[in-house]
Design a protein around this nucleic acid. Structure first.
Lengths: 335, 335
DNA sequence: TTGTATGCGTTATCAG
DNA sequence: CTGATAACGCATACAA
């Protein structure tokens, strides 16, 4: 169990530590063939494994980045993380994923923890509630990329989807299918994507000459969505279509619809803004506004690595197009 | 941007590094009130953050463990990882999750990478194909726990579900509902859970006096499941029920059923061995054999931490009970 | 082509 | 109660 170190290898191979070090770093341009073989052998026999920690301490570089997702239960988080990991792996850098659970306190703890671990940079789905901390990192020029959410006042490379535009397209699709009483269900409007999606919803209704009915706009904690929904659908003029602002909101809607045996889309059309893994196999299949999570993750990783290499450019926002995938849950009323 | 170190704090507070170190490690039993205040102040003013890497190097302990999941697309992996993380966090230890993608090469790479990073222990969903490496760790008494899969010949704490028993219960349920032509769809039988589930399937049929029809037993790569399924269902005596051996197999079945508009359960009953997040809201709802992923993850983490503390006991297998959750997809034929 | 010396930021040991 | 000083395992000038 005794840890074998470079010194052990050096002794066994009858060379000095530095020679072994050079060998490990593939700087054997001027190294004797025999020395090389000796070292190789010693390493094999002793089962030597380099100590990354020690190397990091010396090099001031851990070849590791951190990802702090807002909520691991969001499909987007896992897809984006996966893309980031893939990209990083191909660049020989490791990733540590943490889940802030939409909690600013946890987010802060993780940021501090990861920085204490000397990760070379951070990709964050920001809660938006730790402005000071964010600014701090920016001031220190610490490599940082925001994902999914824009935090105004913090000048950082940010990767998002064009929320307003694609929400708008979804709503237009419903209107084109003859709907006028369209409800939107969203978690509290605390972060930019939700606000932008709500904007898209409202603007599109107005543009089509449809009055906004405040009762049709539900923004509440996930836990109370079903209750609100019940009230809404039991009301006077219940909506004929629902726009779920994200996957978690949709799940609540889906559960409710299931419990009450509501016919979709006959009695109620549904579209969702988010990637839903089973959208194409559920009954009915679900109309979604998908986000290019893979491209977004890759972009974020690229931006971060550039910053780490000191080649970062002026911070800007990278907005990606979504994709409206029309399926059964929003089939035309007229059909 | 300049990193501020303990030395800076010490200078500013007019004490030595060691004193600062003691302060940070809360060993201020005998520390002067004033010294304490001075240090505190210096830390605040300089914005000092301890360097975990340096500490780890010295202490030979990183307070970090690694998790290597076989396939991140399996729901079980994410649930178990989540449970492990939660447990570890409450014990002040961090986790790094890696995805081996069912690839022994990647698994090997990750094991080596994580060990190079000096993680204090490893929880692995083993591919089973790196026996030498596993044995190596066991010999070195490196803290190690296997999850979900038993690797015979490697004596290691292992956390699993009682696969054979619960597969058996699922099959019995189908038989009780009047089915005799029951097919099983599984990925290749390369790892213990699949083998055990197949055992449960076969034994239960035999016990009920039902002949095994080899055509009903499909074990093939995920990519070819649908093709096999098509052949099976187009055959002479198509099965009336399907037992999907895991979530990925089920997804293929679900896609096929959707494409061909097969009525479930009227034309075909379906049960799945795995946790399916949307089982209760799909139409029809899906009968599943659920695994207690949270308990399993917690158990694995506990076992690993014990080993790390040097309090590990003789390695054994911890087998958990599953749960047969009967839903619409397997409703009685007789009803 | 290889060896020596030094330092990375901590913690541990032991004097003072 | 506090301060030197020596590790931890490796990388890097620089010397040889």
């Amino acid at each position: 169990m005794k840890k074998v170190t470079m010194a052990d290898v050096a002794k066994k191979a009858n060379v000095s530590k530095s020679t072994v070090s050079q060998f490990l770093n593939k700087r054997y341009q001027y190294m004797g063939e025999e020395t090389k073989r000796n070292i190789e052998e010693a390493i094999k026999e002793l089962g030597y494994q380099p100590n990354f920690i020690a190397r990091s301490l010396k090099q001031k570089r851990t070849s590791t980045i951190g990802i702090i997702v807002a909520n691991i239960m969001h499909r987007l988080s896992t897809e984006v993380s996966r893309a980031i990991e893939d990209f990083c792996r191909s660049n020989e850098i490791n990733t540590i994923v943490c889940n802030a659970d939409d909690d600013p306190i946890k987010e802060k703890k993780y940021i501090e923890m990861l920085r204490a671990k000397q990760v070379d940079g951070l990709i964050i789905f920001p809660t938006g509630k730790n402005q000071e901390l964010y600014k701090n990192m920016v001031d220190q020029q610490y490599p940082l990329v925001f994902m999914d959410r824009i935090v105004s006042d913090v000048k950082v490379d940010t990767v998002v989807v064009k929320n307003e535009e694609w929400a708008s397209r979804g709503i237009q699709h419903l209107i084109d299918n003859g709907h006028e009483r369209i409800a939107m269900i969203a978690p509290p409007l605390t972060i930019s994507p939700r606000i932008e999606r709500a904007e898209g919803y409202k603007k599109t209704l107005r543009k089509n000459g449809i009055d906004l009915n405040p009762h049709y706009f539900i923004s509440t904690e996930i836990g109370t969505v079903k209750k609100e929904l019940a009230r809404l659908l039991a009301g006077d003029k219940p909506p004929t279509a629902i726009f779920a602002a994200n996957d978690l909101a949709f799940l609540q809607v889906a559960e409710y619809v299931k419990e009450k045996a509501i016919q979709v889309p006959e009695e109620l059309s549904i579209i969702v803004f988010d990637n839903i893994p089973f959208a194409h196999i559920s009954t009915p299949t679900i109309t979604t506004i998908a986000q290019p999570s893979f491209e977004m993750g890759k972009k974020a990783a690229e931006l971060l690595l550039l910053q780490i290499e000191g080649e970062g450019t002026k911070p800007r926002i990278y907005a990606f197009d979504g994709d409206l995938i029309i399926r059964e849950s929003s089939e035309s009323k007229k059909a």
